[in-house]
């Protein structure tokens, strides 16, 4: 797998990868390291840093550090699930539309245009109003918001790659569409398609946080970085840590993911192996 991890050798890949790893470790191992129960009050609300609570307490007197250590899983987990789902659906639609070049293309693309015309948050609120408040609905809703734009990019990239000789050679060999797309098309559209994967992941976090903020997503007393920001934002003067630390975690994750995404996209754009001396032919 050394080929696939080549992006780590670039500065932005190494730094971004390091940041992502840190945030993910905090989110994954945090619950085991947390000194207190994240939902139980441990002292007076909104005190500053103390030996008892390193990052102070929040507006209900719960330990901010414990809540930060517990609050990463949901943010990362849901946003990642929604983004991955969005890519699966978006890429499938885009590949079918771009590769078949039949009536399927305009039908799919006009549907996508209609989807794109909805204001994203409104779409999500209507969905939640209809289907109820649940994590599944939230993830599907966020994926549905992201998928149309992804499918457009995938379609354009597919249209371009489909006219290349190696794709046509596959078609002329009579291979199944699935084989041609998987072998010849998909690997060659990944670079342009994944360039903005980091941004999309960030956007998923943002939408989920917004919905949580509106009280329609994750419900208190769950600990969640986005929820923490919205709960404590009025009291920022009293204990700044309660807002800034979860915000910094989301910020770090965003920066890390974008740096990594760039590095991956760039290493995909190049060949897998360094250029060696030209051979002498014939």
């Amino acid at each position: 797998m050394s080929d696939a991890l080549r992006f780590l050798r670039t500065p932005s890949g190494a730094i971004g990868g390091g940041i992502v790893l840190f945030v993910v470790l905090v989110a994954a191992l945090g619950p085991y390291l947390a000194p207190h129960d994240p939902t139980a009050p441990v002292g007076i609300p909104l005190t500053g840093s103390s030996s008892h609570a390193w990052l102070g307490t929040d507006f209900l007197g719960r330990d901010v550090l414990s809540r930060v250590l517990n609050g990463g899983r949901s943010v990362i987990g849901y946003a990642a699930a929604a983004t991955v789902l969005a890519y699966l659906v978006g890429m499938a639609i885009g590949l079918i539309a771009g590769y078949t070049r039949s009536m399927v293309d305009p039908v799919l693309m006009r549907t996508v245009d209609v989807m794109l015309a909805f204001p994203p948050l409104l779409f999500l609120l209507v969905l939640i109003a209809g289907a109820g408040t649940s994590i599944t609905v939230l993830i599907i809703g966020v994926a549905a918001i992201q998928a149309p734009a992804i499918s457009r990019i995938v379609r354009t990239a597919t249209l371009e790659v489909s006219t290349r000789g190696y794709v046509e050679a596959g078609i002329a060999r009579g291979e199944r569409a699935f084989a041609v797309v998987g072998r010849e098309v998909l690997p060659n559209i990944l670079a342009p398609v994944l360039v903005d994967a980091g941004l999309r992941f960030t956007y998923s976090i943002l939408i989920i946080a917004s919905v949580n903020f509106l009280g329609l997503g994750l419900q208190p007393p769950n600990s969640d970085w986005a929820l923490m920001i919205s709960e404590n934002r009025t009291y920022i003067q009293l204990n700044a840590f309660s807002v800034l630390v979860p915000a910094a975690m989301i910020g770090l994750l965003t920066i890390g993911i974008n740096l990594t995404g760039d590095a991956i996209a760039r290493s995909l754009g190049r060949s897998y192996v360094p250029r060696t001396t030209r051979s002498v032919t014939s």
Binding site: R164, G165, Y166, R183, E184, P187, N188, S271, Y272
Partner: peptide
């Protein structure tokens, strides 16, 4: 320049 799959 376009007839061989650059990833293979």
């Amino acid at each position: 320049f376009e007839s061989l799959n650059p990833r293979q």
